[in-house]
Design a protein around this nucleic acid. Sequence first.
DNA 1: AAGGCACCGTTCATCAAGTGAACGATATTA
DNA 2: TAATATCGTTCACTTGATGAACGGTGCCTT
Lengths: 112, 112
Amino acid sequence: MLTDEYRFKILKELQQDPDISQRELASRLGISLGKVNFCLKALIEKGLVKVENFRNNANKVSYLYLLTPKGIEDRAILTRHFLQKKLQEYESLTQEIEELRKEVLTKKSEND
Amino acid sequence: MLTDEYRFKILKELQQDPDISQRELASRLGISLGKVNFCLKALIEKGLVKVENFRNNANKVSYLYLLTPKGIEDRAILTRHFLQKKLQEYESLTQEIEELRKEVLTKKSEND
DNA sequence: AAGGCACCGTTCATCAAGTGAACGATATTA
DNA sequence: TAATATCGTTCACTTGATGAACGGTGCCTT
C-alpha cells in the first residue's frame, strides 16, 4: 500500500538523489524491496515520478527517478501536511509524557 | 502478536477497570476482538493476569481480569520503559518538526 | 416455566500487506 | 570471453489482524 507517509518519504529521497537503486531506497526507508517497487510504480502511475534511462559519459546505463512538476507540487503539499500532523503529535506526546511522569512518581512514593 | 505497547495498554486498562469485556477493551484500544482475546490469553499464560469468575450479589456471573503481583511489577517497569522511549521520540519529533519548518519556509521564499 | 433478548468469551476462515529469493537483463571486471 | 555484480521485476509465502458466527449464560417478559 502506498500511504501518505511513504509517498512523502520516497519523493523526498528521490528529489535529493534521483539516481538511487530500489534496493538502496528500501534500505534507507527500512522497508522491503518489493514494497519499494510497488510504491514506485504507483508514483509513476500517478504521474508524480518519471523514470529515465540515463546514459552517462562512460556509456553506463542507469536509471533516474525524477519528480515531475506534479510530483514536486505534491511533495510540497505533503510537507505542509506533515508539519501540521507532527505538531499535533507533539501535543499528544507532551501530554503522554506528562502522564507517564506522574505515574512513575506515584509508584515511587508508594514504595518509600 | 503481543507487543510491549499492547501489553502496557492492556495492563493499564485492566488495572483501572478489572471488570471489562473483551469487546469494550477492543473498542477502547482501537483493535479487534480477536486481537484482544489473543493478547489477553498471552498475558494470562505469562502469569501477569489472573481471570476470576466474580459472582456479584445479584447472582450474576461476570469476569474479573486481575493483575497478579507479577503483572503489577511488569506494568511499573513498562511505565518507566515507555517514559524513556517517549522522551526519545520527543527529541526526534522536535528535530523532525524543525526540518519540516525549514523546508516549508524555503519553498515559500522560492515562490515569492 | 418458557421464550426472547443481550452480552459474554472463543474460534477460525478470510483478507491484506510485507517479504525476499529467484530470475533475466545489463554493465563491469579479470 | 567468461565471470561477477547490480539492476528492476515477479510472486509464492508468511504474518497479523479481522469480525461473523457459535455456544453458553444472565435477565426480563409473558
